[in-house]
Structure formats: structure tokens, C-alpha cells
Design a protein around this nucleic acid. Structure first.
Lengths: 252, 252
DNA sequence: CCGTGGCCTTGACCGACGTCAATCCGGTTG
DNA sequence: CAACCGGATTGACGTCGGTCAAGGCCACGG
């Protein structure tokens, strides 16, 4: 596959060193010779079209993936075909970790738009991890970050009313856009309202209503998938329920 | 046991090799010399009393922990002092992973009963990981299992009605008890109803009502913290909402 | 022995949000 | 262009489960 000289479209990428995501991605903090070796194990996955699956639930595990451009959604389907969206993944983010446990993907990943993906074959990666403690450390850090983010999401699902969920969701998206050096106030929601609803544990109708209500309140401008945050301050305020304070001195 | 003769209460443990949890725990699949080296890095944490904290949110990270006996709860507290329970941890289970991301604990862990804990100082562990690929693999597997479990919990929080949540919670506890070679049908709930409610995203009152309802239905026998599963089949059936079927052929 | 305090249970009420259903909008196809 | 279709919006209505409030139970300490 690789040894030969005819690299058709692989030309486009190659080398984490020159990648804009370098510092946000798995290779953060890895330099020089080590980076070259990491680079060498990364294989391009063909670009995914909107709706195309990166891996399927129950499928054999053989690699971890990092989003290079575009975006993914991960979700699980229960026995009755109901699906729950677990998360949305922007460039630089790692997916596929839940498959390491038993060599089979426990969830499913799908492109929300045309996306390109870096593939890290696990066997190769393992060799590298054994030889590069720094990479090992960094991988654990990335996974840990993911776990912490999921914990945050549990707080949202467990305790927050609908409006706060939406606000927190939008803030989180905005923050992640900003970290990618994009404009954090003009969001392009690549996912459907259904996806958002599922992710937040709400009904689509509720999501829709909240968008309009937040637009009426002058916080957002919503046009289909393009959302502009007009009043970040109000959005921020909306993230914590006003009525949920400590017993005494809540208002101080 | 071996080296010296004056080991006060360390006598009680030492050596993963002789630990009943061996195969369920981090050292699963690690043998011989490697196991000895892992063993050497594990430091006993003093036993925790009920309510005592293992680590606090925001605290400096320096070790991962494995429950040896007893049980823990992990939770996060938001700005207003509200707390969300993230999980309950039985013997053999790893806690503290969410702190690797930025060297500070993002959550808090507390003993639900008198518990003993194995402490894995992260610096030591890191050295070992660099030298033992098998341990590195196993650690990733354990963490991956944790991630997958959290995904399952998101399905519960996102889509399931109260009764299903309770049933799934009890089934999961039962399964985990059974894996520890305990009787999976006589549960000892070391956590309070408040903890259960928080974990499941319900009100305490709802949890209470569900216990009585399930007792009336002959599924459980509930006496304070002692819960006996009388009809595992009915409990199992209760785990998936009856009205949630695929569009065609649901009943077949 | 009784009182005190946490946890748990039970009941009555009500509101946020899910469900159902109609409509709209934008993009795609013939 | 019209027809169509999936996604999104909007409104009307019902309900699950949260909230509030009043006890009950058990363990503890005086």
C-alpha cells in the first residue's frame, strides 16, 4: 500500500509537523525525531462524505482516529434501534477509544460533513508507545481530557433544565471553535437538530423552540445551520440556572 | 510474608499476585517478573472511613487509585454547590483518570463505607509503563472500559424513563457484584438514596417510590440498604421500555 | 428513657417538557 | 416549473416526574 512511490492524494497531507492542528492534537509536545516516527505510523484514511461511517458499532477495532478537518458525530444504538448521540468531534479530537476495552467498537462514528481523518493503526501505535514515553503520556492526557468532558456532560444531563443545556452546548462549541482559531461567535452547526436533541437528552421540538426563544431574546441569530452569538455575556449567564444557588447568600 | 518480619498492617495486603482481585484489576494478564515490579510501585493508602475523601476536586494530582475493598462514589460539585454523582466504584475499579489531563482532579472521590485503596503514584507508574508494554496496554484497556461504561450511562440519562434507569442501575450493580464472586442477587447498597438519585438524574422521592413499586411488584425485597433481587427476569425485562420498539415487527 | 437529627417514605400538586399533528421551508429531481 | 421530501418550526395538549410538605424509621447521645 505504502512502500511504492505512487502516492496519489496522500500528497495533500503528511507530516504532523506542518499540520495546523499540531499543538492541539495528539502530537502536542512531541518533537524532532519522535515526531517523525509518529508521523510515519499515521495513515491517511480516505476522506469521508457526509453521512459516511468511520466505524460501526460492533465492528472490529484496529485503529484510533483523529479528525483532521470537518466533523463527526459518535453515537450508540440500543437493541430497539434508538440512537443516543455521545458527542461531536472537531478537528484535533480523538475518537475510537471505547473500542480498546474488548477489540470491538462500542459506538459508531459518522461524518457530519465532508471530513478527513488521520488513522492511527493500533499495532503500530503500540510499538511507538513502548518506545516513546512522551507519546504515552500525551495519549493518556488526551484520553483523560475526554473522560473529564464526559463527566461535565453528565452534570448537564443529570441536573440542568433544557435552556441551560442548550446554552452550555453552544458555549462549548464556541470555545472549541475558538481554540481552532476560528471565529467562536459564528458557529456552523454541521449536525441536525435531531442530533443536538439526542445529545442533550431533549426532544427536537424543544431544541427548535429554544433556538427561536434565544433569537427573540437577542442572544443569537439563527439561520438554519448558521448560528451567530450576538451576546456572549447573556449566553454565559444562561449556562447556570438562576434559581440554583447555595442555600444562603445565593444572590450576593 | 517475605522480606522482613515487622510489617504492621501492611501484612494484610501486599502483592497483587495473592490478591483475590488479580484477574479483574489492573494487573490482569501481567505475570512473573513484571508483576513483581508493578507490585513494588503500589503503595498502600491508609484505609478510608465512611465519608472520608480520597481526593478532592481541584486538588493536585499525583496518583491513580484502585479500590481494594469497600466502595467509593465520585462526584463533581458545580459553582453553586450542587453535586452530581458520576459513579460508584467497587473493588478492582480504577479512579482518578480524569485528573491526568491537567494535573488536577476534576472530580472528587469519597468512601461510601470503610474501604481500602491501592495507590499508584503516577511518576512510578509512568516509569513502569515505559518499560512494560503489556501494562501500558492493560491500562488503556481499563480506561477504555470506563469510557464505554460512561457512554452506556449517557444512553440511560438521555433517553430512559425513571423506572428503566433504576432497573438498569440495579442490574449493573448486580452484574458487578457477581463478577466479584459475590452473590449478585443480594445487594448491599452502600450509597444513600440521594446518591442514587443524583447518579440517575432523578429526585430522591422518585427513587424511593420506585423501590416500593418494584417491591410491590415482587421484583425486589427492599429493607433499608439491603436489596434482594427476587425476580431477575422481571428486572431484566424492565430495563428496556416496552413502548420503545423498532417501527415494524417490534413484538415479534 | 426520651429527644434529636438524618435518611427515607408517602401523598398532593403542578409545571417543564415530551408527544402529536399541522405547516413551512429549502433543496433536489423530473 | 411543479412535485416532492426531509428537516425545521410552531401550536395545542397531556403527562412524567420534580417540588413541597408532612410524617415515619432508625441510630445516636444525653
Amino acid at each position: 500500500m505504502d512502500t511504492s512511490s505512487v502516492l496519489d492524494l496522500n500528497q495533500l497531507r503528511r507530516s504532523c509537523a506542518s499540520c495546523a492542528l499540531h499543538e492541539l492534537c495528539l502530537p502536542a509536545g512531541i518533537d524532532g525525531e519522535d515526531l517523525k516516527r509518529l508521523d510515519a505510523t499515521i495513515r491517511d484514511k480516505r476522506t469521508l462524505d457526509r453521512g459516511e461511517a468511520l466505524f460501526r458499532q460492533g465492528g472490529q477495532f484496529h485503529a484510533l482516529y483523529v479528525v483532521r478537518s470537518g466533523s463527526l458525530r459518535t453515537f450508540v444504538e440500543d437493541a430497539s434501534g434508538n440512537s443516543q448521540v455521545l458527542g461531536f468531534h472537531l478537528p484535533g479530537e480523538l475518537v475510537g477509544v471505547d473500542a480498546l476495552a474488548n477489540d470491538h467498537h462500542a459506538s459508531q462514528a459518522e461524518a457530519l460533513e465532508r471530513s478527513s481523518i488521520c488513522e492511527l493503526p493500533y499495532e503500530h501505535l503500540n510499538h511507538l508507545l513502548a518506545q516513546m514515553p512522551s507519546l504515552q503520556r500525551q495519549l493518556m492526557r488526551v484520553v483523560s481530557r475526554e473522560v473529564a468532558a464526559e463527566h461535565q456532560h453528565m452534570v448537564v444531563m443529570g441536573r440542568q433544565p433544557a435552556q441551560e443545556r442548550m446554552a452550555i452546548f453552544l458555549r462549548s462549541l464556541s470555545d472549541r471553535f475558538a481554540r481552532l482559531h476560528r471565529d467562536g461567535s459564528t458557529l456552523n452547526l454541521s449536525m441536525s437538530r435531531y442530533d443536538i436533541a439526542s445529545y442533550l437528552g431533549l426532544a427536537v421540538e424543544t431544541v427548535s423552540r429554544l433556538f427561536t426563544r434565544m433569537e427573540e431574546a437577542g442572544i443569537l441569530e439563527v439561520s438554519r445551520k448558521a448560528v451567530t452569538i450576538l451576546r456572549p455575556d447573556l449566553l454565559e449567564a444562561m449556562c447556570s440556572s438562576p434559581r440554583t444557588g447555595s442555600k444562603k447568600g445565593g444572590a450576593l
